[in-house]
Each structure stands twice: as structure tokens, then as C-alpha cells.
Deep mutational scan, measured.
Amino acid sequence: GTVHVGDKTYHFPTPDAAKKFAQEIAKKLNLQVTVKNGTWQVH
């Protein structure tokens, strides 16, 4: 899975790992999470 946070991109071996990371970052930074075609965006 891929997660975009601002101008950074993180790659994870599984979709679940990407989802978990995106949700944790969003919670920590009080941001929104959207997913499109398996790519997570934190914004």
C-alpha cells in the first residue's frame, strides 16, 4: 500500500499496514484521510 502525507510518500508491504499508518498519522496530526485506488492520502 502507498500513503501520501503532504509531499512525502510511504510504501507498505500490505494494504492493511498502509491503512493503519494513514489512520494513525491522521489522528495524530488531526487531518483527514481519503483513499483512492488503494492509495491513501492524509491531508
Rank of each mutant, 00 (worst) to 15 (best):
G1T: 12
G1L: 11
G1Y: 15
G1W: 14
G1D: 07
G1M: 10
T2G: 03
T2Y: 09
T2R: 10
T2P: 02
T2Q: 07
T2M: 09
T2V: 12
T2I: 13
V3I: 02
V3R: 01
V3Q: 01
V3S: 01
V3F: 01
V3K: 00
V3E: 01
V3D: 00
H4T: 12
H4D: 05
H4L: 15
H4V: 15
V5R: 02
V5N: 02
V5I: 13
V5A: 04
G6V: 05
G6Y: 13
G6R: 06
G6W: 12
D7A: 13
D7M: 13
D7P: 11
D7T: 14
D7G: 14
D7E: 11
D7F: 13
K8A: 08
K8D: 06
K8P: 00
K8W: 10
K8M: 10
T9E: 07
T9Y: 10
T9C: 07
T9S: 08
Y10M: 03
Y10V: 03
Y10C: 06
Y10H: 03
Y10S: 00
Y10Q: 01
H11R: 09
H11S: 08
H11W: 13
H11M: 08
H11A: 06
H11N: 08
H11Y: 13
F12Y: 02
F12S: 00
F12H: 01
F12M: 02
F12A: 01
F12G: 00
F12N: 00
F12E: 00
F12R: 00
P13I: 07
P13H: 09
P13G: 09
P13V: 08
P13T: 12
P13F: 07
T14N: 10
T14W: 04
T14I: 03
P15F: 13
P15M: 13
P15Q: 15
P15C: 11
P15H: 13
P15K: 13
P15S: 12
P15T: 11
P15Y: 14
P15G: 09
P15L: 13
D16T: 09
D16K: 09
D16Y: 10
D16F: 09
D16W: 09
D16A: 13
D16P: 04
A17D: 09
A17H: 07
A17Q: 12
A17G: 07
A17Y: 05
A17W: 05
A17N: 04
A17F: 05
A18M: 02
A18R: 00
A18I: 03
A18G: 02
A18T: 01
A18E: 00
K19A: 14
K19Q: 13
K19G: 08
K19D: 06
K19F: 12
K19T: 05
K20C: 10
K20T: 10
K20I: 11
K20V: 10
K20M: 11
K20P: 00
K20F: 10
K20L: 11
K20G: 05
K20A: 13
F21A: 03
F21E: 00
F21R: 01
F21Y: 07
F21G: 00
F21H: 01
A22K: 00
A22T: 02
A22H: 00
A22G: 02
A22W: 02
Q23R: 08
Q23G: 06
Q23D: 08
Q23W: 15
E24Q: 12
E24S: 12
E24V: 10
E24H: 13
E24W: 15
E24G: 10
I25C: 10
I25P: 00
I25T: 07
I25M: 11
I25K: 03
I25F: 06
I25E: 04
I25L: 13
I25V: 10
A26H: 02
A26L: 03
A26V: 03
K27A: 12
K27I: 09
K27V: 08
K27Y: 09
K27Q: 11
K27F: 11
K27H: 09
K28M: 11
K28T: 08
L29C: 06
L29F: 15
L29M: 08
L29R: 04
L29W: 14
L29N: 06
L29D: 04
L29V: 03
N30Y: 04
N30F: 05
N30V: 04
N30P: 01
N30E: 05
N30A: 06
N30I: 03
N30T: 04
L31G: 12
L31W: 14
L31Y: 07
L31E: 03
L31I: 05
L31A: 15
L31D: 01
L31H: 05
Q32Y: 07
Q32L: 11
Q32C: 12
Q32V: 14
Q32W: 08
Q32N: 09
Q32P: 09
Q32A: 11
V33E: 02
V33F: 09
V33K: 02
V33P: 04
T34G: 04
T34I: 08
T34L: 06
T34K: 05
V35T: 07
V35D: 07
K36D: 11
K36G: 06
K36A: 11
K36F: 13
N37S: 05
N37D: 15
N37F: 05
N37P: 03
N37I: 04
N37R: 04
N37V: 03
N37M: 05
G38D: 09
G38A: 06
G38Q: 06
G38S: 06
G38R: 05
T39A: 15
T39P: 02
T39Y: 10
T39V: 15
T39R: 10
T39I: 15
W40G: 02
W40S: 02
W40Y: 14
W40T: 03
W40P: 02
W40H: 04
W40C: 04
W40M: 04
W40E: 02
Q41R: 12
Q41V: 15
Q41I: 15
Q41A: 07
Q41G: 05
Q41N: 11
Q41W: 15
Q41T: 15
Q41K: 07
V42P: 03
V42M: 04
V42Q: 02
V42T: 04
V42C: 03
V42E: 02
V42A: 03
H43M: 13
H43D: 09
H43I: 13
H43V: 13
H43Y: 14
H43S: 12
